[in-house]
């Protein structure tokens, strides 16, 4: 048995433009419930606090808040506020939007990062973005601190932290 010739040849961009096609633009809109645990997490953010869940069995302090410990598979035992500082575990400097379109030269680059939060168990990171920093100077292990929106502008969203900046 040999596989030397395979079917299908694909369309060039031109052929694709000309090909008969049917278009559909669905309206896929959702309202996702926060649920109880994340609801508390968001309420904490509104109050300028980063909340973490505790599990008394494994002793972990976990972010974000969750109803159950996924390792012990039992309900968590309450929340505590951890620091709004942390350490950059990893980061990227992104030059493209999700649709593969490119950011314009003068647009600020997105700098997503995984930040291990101080006061939570080791390795408990959250994804956020870095700001107020020269992208070329970002380093793994850098200490960063949350920059909060003014109280009046907070709505109970992860965006209530505008970004993390070095301190």
């Amino acid at each position: 048995m040999k596989i030397e010739k395979v079917p299908m040849k694909g369309l060039t961009s031109e052929e694709y433009e000309k090909a008969l096609k049917i278009s559909w633009k669905p309206k896929l809109q959702y309202a996702w419930d926060n649920g109880i645990a994340i609801g508390k997490y968001l309420q904490g953010l509104k109050e300028g606090k980063l909340l973490a869940s505790c599990c008394n069995r494994c002793g972990r302090i976990m972010l974000p808040v969750r109803s159950f410990c996924e390792l012990c598979w039992r309900p968590t035992d309450g929340e505590i506020a951890v620091n709004d500082t942390g350490v950059v575990n990893t980061f990227a400097i992104c030059h493209v939007n999700w649709d593969a379109s490119r950011l314009k030269p003068d647009e600020p680059r997105h700098i997503p990062a995984v930040i291990e939060i101080d006061g939570a168990s080791k390795g408990q990171g959250i994804m956020h973005v870095l700001g107020n920093v020269d992208p070329a100077k970002v380093k793994i292990g850098m200490k960063v601190k949350a920059v909060w929106k003014p109280v009046a502008e907070r709505v109970g969203s992860i965006d209530d932290i505008r970004f993390f900046e070095p301190y």
Binding site: W24, K25, L28, Q29, Y30, D33
Partner: peptide, 14 residues
């Protein structure tokens, strides 16, 4: 509370 969002895609079927 809830968070609103969408899946921003459209389709072209050959």
């Amino acid at each position: 509370g809830y968070f609103e969002g969408e899946i921003p895609v459209n389709y072209q079927y050959t």
